[in-house]
């Protein structure tokens, strides 16, 4: 019962990710895409968390935080790039 519930949650989450992917592909602006990516990252975190519960293991908790970190850095990098044309500045 609980497991079915978890699977259901995962499926809902997948649908959410699919919506995000739609936005990722559609755009129209780069900012939209970055936003969609950010959302996908956050949804992935949720997915992994559910999966950990489903598998009853804490082996993947690191992954959760890691996805958070990477998605944040990615978003910042993209935003920087969109804003300034370079990713890392030599000197401001």
């Amino acid at each position: 019962m609980f497991n079915i519930f978890m699977i259901l949650s995962l499926i809902i989450l997948t649908i959410a990710i699919l919506f995000n992917i739609y936005r990722l592909i559609k755009g129209p602006s780069s900012a939209d895409r970055v936003q969609a990516l950010d959302a996908i990252g956050i949804n992935l975190i949720a997915g992994i968390a559910i999966f950990s519960v489903y598998l009853d293991t804490h082996a993947f908790f690191e992954l959760i935080l890691l996805i958070g970190i990477l998605s944040f850095i990615g978003t910042i990098a993209f935003a920087r790039f969109l804003e300034r044309g370079v990713v890392i500045e030599r000197k401001r």
Partner: peptide, 9 residues
């Protein structure tokens, strides 16, 4: 899990 972490990064 180790692979997942590494692959992720």
């Amino acid at each position: 899990p180790d692979l997942a972490l590494t692959q992720m990064v």
